[in-house]
Design a protein around this nucleic acid. Sequence first.
DNA 1: AACCACTATCTGCTTACCTCA
DNA 2: AATGAGGTAAGCAGATAGTGG
Length: 260
Amino acid sequence: MGSDHDDICNTVLVLGLGFSSTSVQNPSKADNQRPNNKPRIFEPSLSLGLCGETYNRNNMVAKDSDWLVLYREESGASSFSNASVKREREMGSEEVEIERVWGRVSDEDDDGANGRKKLRLNKVQSALLEESFKQHSTLNPKQKQDLARKLNLRPRQVEVWFQNRRARTKLKQTEVDCELLKKCCETLTDENRRLQKEVQDLKALKLAQPLYMATLTMCPSCELIGGGGGRDNTSNSPVLTMAPKTHFLINPFSNPSTAC
DNA sequence: AACCACTATCTGCTTACCTCA
DNA sequence: AATGAGGTAAGCAGATAGTGG
């Protein structure tokens, strides 16, 4: 995208949308499979990534002690819903196994509610996911597994997070594009207004022109028109004042100054 | 080679839950 | 304390592409 949308808006007749470049450094298999190889929108984002965190299975502690985040048991794994047959079908056997194991964990701390429980990723998890998303907005199975292991999340959760993250990015980009289009629209409206006014002026000039021409055709023969001043420009001034626009192409033969 | 079933992954939309003003 | 809005994890449907029988 252009660094400044003025660049685009100044190009009055061409209205285009520039999407941010598609920096997929590690295109996954799925990326390669994507129909039409649709451009990917990648939005740079702030993140709070920490390097070298270590995680405990039951609680997560940032090594740098920049923050201390206790892994919320009720969140980390409890969002496991009564996994539908469909989901099981959709997952690889390995993932299903992981899902089962983690599901068991979640069942234990589940408070028995039937509905899905809202998971809230903690800062470390979010930061790492963000960091990972910055590098590649899609995941291949290995990356997913690794991330899930590192973050103490289920692969499905990582997958969902990436899906939602892409959706958020796209939404944000759409909003930006919308604003851009609004600005361009305003610019075009102004330009249109200006051009219409110019057309009106030209029309007015055209209406006035027959009289103007008649005056001029008479000019060479009588030479006295306009108060008998001969070639005196000031005597022709009434004719001159009829031209309202300066950038109008003037026929040299109809120009009083040349004719007279 | 064409067809079909299955699998994996995606997008888009929606829902449910949580947080916060 | 109640509540409505906004954010977000997760569910679901449908599309697409690869693979194997």
